[in-house]
Amino acid sequence: MYIVREIFYLQFGRFKEAKALVDEAHSLGLMKMPEGGKILTDFTGEGYRLIFEGPYKTLADFEADLAREMNAEAWKIWYEKFKPLVRHSEREILKQIS
């Protein structure tokens, strides 16, 4: 089992806009989280993060979901609105061992 975290560090003061866009993406069916997936935000540490966390049985499953999402034209349009709210991002891929 793998846990994938997409971590977006937001511009200061832009959390509400980013959250509204995430809500929009959900309502349009653009972000299909795997079963057990979560959307998190920071409570401590470096501020203003949105973290999309999802479990995958294999890395191939993750790659298939990523390709499907990123190749959708509606997602590309949505992502252009989301990008200006982000300072930088990173991806963590963790292997669950127990």
Rank of each mutant, 00 (worst) to 15 (best):
I93K: 04
R49M: 10
A60G: 02
T41L: 07
I77W: 07
I39M: 06
A25G: 09
G13W: 05
Y79E: 15
I97L: 15
E46A: 03
A67Y: 06
D42Y: 04
A64W: 02
A25S: 14
G13P: 01
Y79K: 15
E17A: 13
Q96N: 11
K95N: 05
S27V: 07
K83D: 11
I3F: 02
T58E: 06
D42C: 06
F8T: 00
A20C: 01
L59S: 02
K38Q: 14
I77V: 15
I93V: 15
E46P: 03
L59N: 04
A18E: 00
L30M: 10
I97F: 14
L66S: 12
I97G: 06
L28N: 14
I93Q: 07
K32N: 15
G36T: 10
A60I: 03
G29A: 08
A64C: 04
I7S: 02
R14F: 05
L28G: 03
R5Y: 04
L66P: 00
E6C: 00
R14Q: 14
G13T: 03
L28K: 15
L85T: 00
T58P: 05
T41A: 13
G37L: 07
T44E: 12
F82C: 07
A25E: 12
R87F: 08
F43N: 11
Y9T: 03
D23T: 05
R91S: 12
M1E: 08
E90S: 14
G47H: 08
I77G: 04
E53F: 01
K32D: 13
L85W: 10
A25K: 05
Q11A: 04
E24A: 04
K16A: 15
E63H: 09
E24L: 14
D42K: 07
Y2C: 01
S89W: 14
Q96R: 15
I97R: 11
A64S: 09
E24F: 09
V86I: 13
D65G: 04
E73V: 04
D61M: 05
L21P: 01
L28W: 08
T58W: 06
E73Y: 07
D23S: 09
E63L: 09
G54E: 04
E46N: 08
E80R: 13
I39Y: 02
A25F: 09
T44L: 12
Y48R: 13
I7E: 04
I51G: 01
E63P: 00
M1R: 05
L21N: 08
G47Y: 05
F82S: 11
I97K: 11
T44G: 08
K95E: 15
V86N: 09
Y48T: 06
R49Y: 01
F12C: 00
K16I: 06
A20W: 00
L66A: 12
A25L: 09
K19F: 09
E90T: 14
A18T: 04
L40I: 05
A74T: 07
A18P: 01
